[in-house]
Design a protein around this nucleic acid. Structure first.
Lengths: 216, 216
DNA sequence: CCTACCGATCGGTAGG
DNA sequence: CCTACCGATCGGTAGG
């Protein structure tokens, strides 16, 4: 996360200004549309996220969507990008909440847990980013890859620190370790069901398998 | 492929019989349709795999597809199920090719490599099964889950043997290990590019990270 | 935010 | 395997 979400001072000051595409009112029409699209992208995919399906979830007519967004793809792109930003903030916050003495391994386990919580429990946006990305229109995939890469940089740093501290075998590429771990957490949405294995436990097991026991 | 279809039927009849296209054998028109659908499912997803897009790749008209299959979904279901069967056979064959003295860890590494080869290099069917599954129509997902579970049983057995042989920490659930590994290999399609890291190396690194060094 | 509608495209069919 | 077509639905627009 290079910078925070672009904080627009004017938007922060606004009281009842019309919710433009950039800063939707938390309960306004634009936000409801984004929420509906996020749910559909997560559970049905890109093509099935039709303007009519979005409108039905919000309780409006399909044509009314275009008073808030210029196109379906503008909505989709917002959802996908917000999903990456949300999980990035969750992971960053989890890392900052750790005590100073936390090891690189502790940090990785915290990142795994935060990523899983965001994508499995907290955010349709994050899950939509993960699951729907592969089949987005090629140009949009290219655009959204920018924010995605920024998020992956967090993991590259975490993995580098872990490798230096000896948590990864010297003859194993940190890239392979990063891709293996990101694959494991991104794929969790395909098998995770609430109420079975707690996310805490999944994160602990993943970290244990990849990095061994905690050093006490 | 599509471009060489002759416009003039009389001219087409005069030319040599295009055996590879019109032969009524099991590898004829029906197989070409399945191949085209597999490519589309892998690269574009379920909804974008239209009867017209399939027909165009084969070099026929959309309506002609229904001479071979009763519906689009019958084609899709065949592709998804064949993809699981193909990777299952590849993994089983790789395991049988190992020497008797192979350890459970050797067997897991061989399975990882066979799964990756099948889904990344050899088979649009396998890749389609992995990537397109999540957004299939719910009833079809349910149907295809049968074959999928059967494949996952192979991994459950492999992981159980590895756990008994001490390759997995006793306080870690073999389920978590299996799901982590399957997630890692299934997600590889999202980042793998031919010519970079060899699949052999990826498999070796994944096994090294999850199960430690080989015992010599 | 709605009604009413556009041209394009969807899965599928009739009848050769 | 093709031509010609069906009703349904798509993203998007006009004008209130």
């Amino acid at each position: 996360m290079a910078g925070e979400t672009t904080i627009n001072p004017a938007a922060a000051r606004r009281t009842k200004a019309p919710a433009k595409e950039k800063a939707p009112d938390p309960n306004g029409g634009a936000r409801q549309i984004l929420n509906a699209a996020a749910w559909l992208l997560r559970h049905r995919g890109y093509e099935a996220t039709t303007t009519r399906a979005i409108a039905e979830r919000v309780g409006i007519k399909a044509g009314s969507i275009y008073h808030h967004f210029p196109s379906k793809d503008a909505i989709v792109e917002r959802v996908i990008n917000e999903g990456v930003l949300v999980v990035g903030k969750a992971v960053t916050a989890a890392l900052e909440a750790l005590p100073k003495k936390a090891t690189p391994r502790d940090r990785l386990q915290a990142a795994i847990k935060a990523h899983l919580l965001s994508s499995l429990e907290h955010s349709d946006y994050t899950s939509a980013s993960i699951r729907a990305f592969a089949f987005l229109p090629p140009e949009m995939r290219k655009t959204c890859r920018v924010e995605r890469r920024r998020y992956e940089d967090i993991w590259q740093q975490l993995m580098q620190d872990a490798a230096r501290a000896g948590y990864i075998p010297a003859d194993v590429s940190p890239d392979a370790a990063r891709l293996m771990l990101l694959g494991a957490v991104n794929w969790a949405g395909e098998w995770y069901r609430p109420g079975r294995i707690p996310i805490d436990r999944i994160a602990a097991d993943f970290a244990r398998i990849a990095f061994g026991a905690r050093r006490t």
